[in-house]
Amino acid sequence: MAKQYDVLFRLLLLGDSGVGKTCLLCRFTDNEFHPSHISTIGVDFKMKTLEIDGIKVRIQIWDTAGQERYQTITKQYYRRAQGIFLVYDITSERSFQHIMKWASDVDEYAPEKVQKILVGNKSDEEQKRQVATEQGDKLAKAYGMDFFETSAFTNHNITESFTRLAELVLQANKKDLDLLGGSMNEELNLAVLEEQEGLCNGSDDTRKSCWC
């Protein structure tokens, strides 16, 4: 019947304030939508279980503050992520332009193997659109990322985009998974794996800076 082994990994939502990161997360985990913008001041997370190729994948999704003044602090959370959503708002040219900056920060601070996808949110707001789908497409291609236009409001492409990123992360870590999962039916936790292999030196400088 059920599962054989569990995988746990972390995905991170990045993008300017107001693009809808918190709404994407709420829609995905609780199937809810809040029209008001209560800016995230801090770093929040939620858990969700997905089944991908018969493997139960538990993902921990981190929602970060998009406001500029917090960016120096949110950067320190990047290195713990295995997958990153770069989110802009299709009704905001500015948020789209900032993707470049977000992406370069990711290059600098996130682990090398990190998987990224580009998300243009608020696809329901067609009449206020400032960023054409083609522009998003083109940028995603340039970065070699998958691209989704989503709407947290109408629930368009939400599950698809989250599942896609989870798939990518799973694929990218397939080797480790097979190594451990193949021989025995046990759970495995990428986060633990990474600790074991010393990929994150959690014990010294920022021992307590991240949830673990």
């Binding site: 001041i41 801090g42 770093v43 929040d44 997370f45 503050a65 003044r69 917090y70 602090i73 307590k208 800076s209 949830w211």
Partner: peptide, 16 residues
């Protein structure tokens, strides 16, 4: 300054 108030096994809050 920005303070990071961390909850064990939980979220982080920023206080500016």
């Amino acid at each position: 300054d920005i303070l990071v108030l961390h909850l064990e096994r939980g979220k982080d809050y920023f206080i500016s």
